[in-house]
């Protein structure tokens, strides 16, 4: 696993990444193959989102606190804010029509 911006955060990052990856690997393939019925899909997504929170929520809070401080200390906060203002990217970019056919 790669290092964190701050060596202090690297152990927290690795714990969090390992937790997320383990959860994600159990999530993705069932999520792809789960029934096409919207209500079943939604139920599955809700259960899995809650499971992620349960498993990795605490690790995430600790790691995020550390990395937010590291971003400040490295003077990256204003560059990030500018990038977020220019392009918030709150939603996925639309699929290009040529590829969806």
């Amino acid at each position: 696993m790669a290092h964190s911006l701050s060596e202090q955060c690297t152990p927290l990052k690795r714990e969090y990444d390992a937790c997320f990856n383990a959860w994600f690997e159990g999530y993705l393939e069932p999520a792809v193959s789960t029934s096409a019925r919207p209500e079943e899909r939604q139920k599955f997504a809700q259960e899995k989102a809650a499971e992620y929170e349960r498993n990795c929520g605490k690790l995430w809070v600790q790691y995020r606190e550390c990395v937010q401080k590291a971003v400040k200390d490295r003077g990256l906060e204003s560059l990030l804010e500018q990038a977020r203002t220019e392009n918030p990217l709150k939603d996925a970019p639309p699929a290009p029509p040529a590829e969806s056919s």
């Binding site: 790669a2 990052k13 969090y16 899909r41 997504a45 989102a49 992620y52 990395v67 590291a70």
Partner: peptide
């Protein structure tokens, strides 16, 4: 050349299952 990677924000949408 890629030496550090940090997650700044992550969400799992409980409605759509989309991970951002």
């Amino acid at each position: 050349h890629v030496v550090t990677i940090d997650t700044l924000d992550r969400s799992v949408d409980p409605e759509t299952g989309v991970i951002r």
